[in-house]
Design a protein around this nucleic acid. Structure first.
Length: 296
DNA sequence: CGCCAGGATACCC
DNA sequence: GGGTATCATGGC
């Protein structure tokens, strides 16, 4: 059976690990890989088979399998889990507390949303990748965003190979790699009018004019202000970058789907400050649920 | 084919 | 300040 001597409890977030070669088993009630993959925050997590997903993040490739509702297998070493994936999946944060609060709260829509998306977590992704990904996202649907990001990675990102899993893949390019791109070559990647925005943002980071590391430790408000100095970044895209790439979980992106929620269910009177400090998580439950309600 | 997409900008009043 | 035409392209 799954719980034998190879597992032991590591912390209060109900988090287990297997002392084995490059396979970790994580136990957590609020960790559902399908929900995360479909929650519109991550564009390089894709299904391989039932309950199994691939993910390219940083310079790594991993596979994730949902073994049970509260059990996920990750194809990584214990060392990589501690150094990279534990932080990436925000596993030191208690999402159960927020889900419980919303489920027991008086807000009908949020109650349903929290039940439906109780396995969502906010991923702590690469800041530059988020910067470019959400510039691309404007006026595009999610499948199209994913295709653009794959083309950018294939063309400008470094190539890697995982021999154990027999997989070749490309990382998302660094700021320097992308800043060296020629505008005509970017145009061939079918990014539309966003290509010059992407070039400008990449150069700003490469030149040090936009310091993403500094914005991680600044306030959310300062991050938004700095991001919006980049041409092609407005309020919504800035909030997505702040939330998914700079880890300011009080960010509250409002896209077309969120506008529907706020208009149809709250008469435009929803106040994110009621959930101060974690409004971004509340926002993800809303976003994921309203798309489901509309059949996506 | 037409409509929409995890919008932003420039330009209008 | 608030309204809106336009942007390039793909998914459905």
């Amino acid at each position: 059976m799954i719980f034998d001597k190879h597992f032991y409890n590591v912390d209060v977030t109900n988090d287990y690990k297997l002392m084995n070669e490059d396979i970790m088993i994580i136990k957590n009630k609020n960790f559902n890989i399908k929900q995360i993959a479909d929650s519109g925050q991550c564009f390089r997590m894709n299904p391989i088979s039932d309950n199994k997903y691939s993910l390219i993040a940083f310079d790594r490739y991993i596979e994730l399998e949902q073994l049970e509702d509260d059990l996920i297998e990750i194809s990584c070493s214990e060392e990589d889990y501690e150094l990279i994936w534990k932080d990436y999946f925000h596993l030191d944060y208690d999402y159960g507390r927020i889900v419980d609060e919303l489920i027991n709260g008086s807000d009908e829509f949020l109650r349903e949303a929290a039940i439906y998306g109780s396995g969502i977590r906010i991923l702590r992704q690469d800041s530059f990748e988020m910067l470019i990904s959400f510039i691309i996202s404007q006026n595009k649907n999610i499948p199209s965003i994913k295709n653009c990001i794959e083309r950018i990675s294939e063309t400008y990102g470094e190539s890697y190979r995982d021999d154990k899993l027999n997989i070749s893949y490309n990382a998302f390019p660094s700021p320097n790699e992308l800043a060296k791109a020629r505008k005509e070559d970017l145009r061939a990647l079918k990014l539309g009018y966003r290509d010059e925005y992407i070039l400008g943002a990449s150069r700003a980071v490469a030149m040090g004019d936009l310091d993403l590391e500094k914005l991680k430790v600044s306030s959310h408000e300062e991050a938004i202000k700095a991001l919006k100095t980049i041409k092609g970044i407005g309020d919504k895209v800035a909030n997505c970058i702040s939330l998914f790439g700079l880890y300011h979980i009080e960010a509250f992106p409002i896209d077309v789907w969120m506008k529907r929620v706020l208009s149809e269910y709250y008469q435009d009177k929803f106040d994110p400050l009621r959930y101060k400090g974690y409004a971004g998580i509340v926002q993800q439950y809303m976003f994921y649920y309203i798309r489901h309600v509309h059949g996506i």
